[in-house]
Structures are given as structure tokens and as C-alpha cells.
């Protein structure tokens, strides 16, 4: 789906709506939100089910292929959604030169967190 399809021909002709990436940001925030509903509920229920369990039991759960898959999906959707949400908040409240620095730092931080989480998840799954 492209951002142009989300806007009417009349809206584009008279210059209404976002001039840049607003539509795409809006749409992706909602797509990631829909993905996060089952993923976060799965994670919450799973961690509650493992409350009080020892390291070996938790690792056995984390090593299951379905856990690895869902955890990877959770991390990607979570940090994508976080980056989009924090972007709008920074754009709304920060108007100084700090804005660009914060936006770039936040985006890189979210990417770094997602990759770190993925590497940890894969190390648990395939590590010795």
C-alpha cells in the first residue's frame, strides 16, 4: 500500500493534508498497533505463566521456536511503534534545534534496542 492511495485525488489537487510523510506515519503506527495487540497479550500471559520459575524453565520456554518467532515479531513491532509514537511527541513539544538531534537519536536508539533484543533472542535460541 502506498501513501498516495490513502489520499483522495481532490485532496491532493487542492493541497489538503500532509505535505510529507504524515499519512505513512499515521498508517504504519496503526498497522504496528494492530500487530502489537496479540503480541503484547501473548507476552503478558506467557510471563505471568512463568512467574516464580527458575532460569532453566524460563530458558526452555525462550528456546521454543514459537517463542523465538513471536519474540522477534514483538521486538520489531514494539520498537517500530515506539519510534513512530515518540517521533510525533518530539515534533509536538520540541521546537528548538534539539528537535532534529532528539529525532535522530531516538530513531537510532529504537533501532539499536530492536537489534540488541533480536540478537539476544537468537543467541538464546541457537546459542550453546
Amino acid at each position: 500500500m502506498t501513501r498516495t492511495q490513502m489520499r483522495s485525488a481532490l485532496g491532493k489537487a487542492v493541497g489538503l493534508g500532509s505535505a510529507r510523510d504524515g499519512v505513512e506515519n499515521w498508517l504504519l503506527e496503526r498497522v504496528s498497533a494492530v500487530a502489537l495487540i496479540p503480541l503484547t497479550l501473548w507476552f503478558t500471559v506467557s510471563t505471568v505463566m512463568h512467574a516464580g520459575d527458575d532460569y532453566a524453565t524460563v530458558m526452555a520456554w525462550l528456546r521454543r521456536p514459537v517463542t523465538t518467532t513471536l519474540m522477534a515479531l514483538l521486538l520489531m513491532a514494539l520498537f517500530h511503534h515506539t519510534a513512530l509514537g515518540l517521533q510525533v511527541i518530539i515534533e509536538d513539544y520540541v521546537h528548538s534545534r534539539m528537535k532534529v538531534l532528539l529525532l535522530v537519536g531516538m530513531r537510532l536508539g529504537c533501532l539499536a534496542m530492536a537489534v540488541t533484543g533480536l540478537v539476544a533472542t537468537l543467541k538464546i535460541a541457537f546459542g550453546a
Binding site: V58, L62, T82, G85, I89, M113, T116, T121
Partner: peptide, 20 residues
């Protein structure tokens, strides 16, 4: 809550790294 959950998401990564 979104901002708070961003911080908790970092804690989730720290927890996964510790498990690994």
C-alpha cells in the same frame, strides 16, 4: 503511558540480554 512503555521496552531488552 506510551513514553513510559518505551522505557519499559528498553527494560525488556535488558532482561532478554541478561537471559542470553
Amino acid at each position: 503511558t506510551g513514553v513510559a512503555l518505551a522505557a519499559y521496552a528498553v527494560a525488556l531488552v535488558a532482561w532478554l540480554v541478561s537471559a542470553a
